[in-house]
Design a binder for these strands. Sequence first.
DNA 1: AACTATTTTTAGACAAGGCTAAAAATTGTT
DNA 2: AACAATTTTTAGCCTTGTCTAAAAATAGTT
Lengths: 220, 220
Amino acid sequence: MFSLSEENYLKAIFHLEKKYSAGVSTNALAEEMETKASSVTDMLKKLSDKNLVKYRKYQGVHLSENGKHAAIEVIRKHRLWEVFLVEKLNFSWDEVHDIAEQLEHIKSEKLTDELDKFLGHPKRDPHGDPIPDAAGNFRISNKMLLSDLSEGQSGICVGVKDSSTEFLRYLDKNEITLGKPIKVVQREEYDDSLLIQVNENELRVSKSISTNLFVKPTES
Amino acid sequence: MFSLSEENYLKAIFHLEKKYSAGVSTNALAEEMETKASSVTDMLKKLSDKNLVKYRKYQGVHLSENGKHAAIEVIRKHRLWEVFLVEKLNFSWDEVHDIAEQLEHIKSEKLTDELDKFLGHPKRDPHGDPIPDAAGNFRISNKMLLSDLSEGQSGICVGVKDSSTEFLRYLDKNEITLGKPIKVVQREEYDDSLLIQVNENELRVSKSISTNLFVKPTES
DNA sequence: AACTATTTTTAGACAAGGCTAAAAATTGTT
DNA sequence: AACAATTTTTAGCCTTGTCTAAAAATAGTT
């Protein structure tokens, strides 16, 4: 069994490996964990001793198979609890992160599996992120960023990259909801803003919005 | 906010104060917490500094009002989660304790209140223990031990004193369920065993059973 | 290739929570 | 009241996870 801190490091490395496939640097991990580089080095040695990461001094870190498994298990629990909070306890999608951050460390395989069953084996959390199954398999999806759609192209909102309260509230305010169709009406090259159509309304969104919303392009 | 360890100490003191109303001794607390007396002394100093307990060296400890409040909040969460596990996730009453022991430390007032609402404001947990309301008030009940019933007297099973897996499984095996009527047919003075009637069957139970099952005597 | 800037690691310290062994206080017994 | 037994506290040390400051390694630039 892993400590709370170990689990958080594994999770952070898992997320950062998507961006830094060549290896996660000590500094990047320190920033993600909101701690100091020296603390990270200490922890990496411990994780390495437990064969949860592949770590060579100065060379960055990768998860081992064991570490990856452990990280996915934590992510699975996090996302299932988020679904629970939104679907069953009337939380809104911008309130659930911190609580799920606590609940993800509860240790009981049966609890996780029963929760999954109770929720009807959901495939995605409230932010559109995929929930791995009990074996740790993620469903892959052909999502792309709204900013990658070309003029005239349409898609369905399927997830957010930034799940901060601020961004989620912005989406709520503008009635942009996962599952809804969205269309790029016009692209302004000067500032990379987009004129989009949602709910029969047109709305101009800046680059910082369009690069944080995932869409599944509509077949055409 | 209190640490996991602090919350566990407060909870333990709360439970022990029922038995040791003159003050909870260091040794009693050490046994309850499965730790050493010296560790208890250390923690009592910390809790005392935070005004959570009233502690004078060598004189035992009492909860302060703040400490009592904190303890009740943890107990409320523990019991609500137990209801959730049994009612919603198909756990049996002998499996829930360890998981609730983890869940009781999750910090979110809204979570507790929404969970309470979701469960329909339950008054008792699966072992018959009362669940304090959001203000910390317990419902008092006139329960007594099965062993305190006299020959011929009847009652309703309302709770267990020992909630170990072993005892709960014994009750399950003999189909003794909370809410069911129970009657003392005969009392054997020699070993304090009782012949009881439940579900139309007669069953002999030893003293260690009858002193761990709470009943509400039937008006007569 | 050498020098600088940046990143990473090491060394030493600290707080929380726990332990052992020894000292001090309390309780019990004659 | 005095000695013995028990309980409680103190003192010092350990582990986990963190920190700061300094040293070492790597990367970047001329």
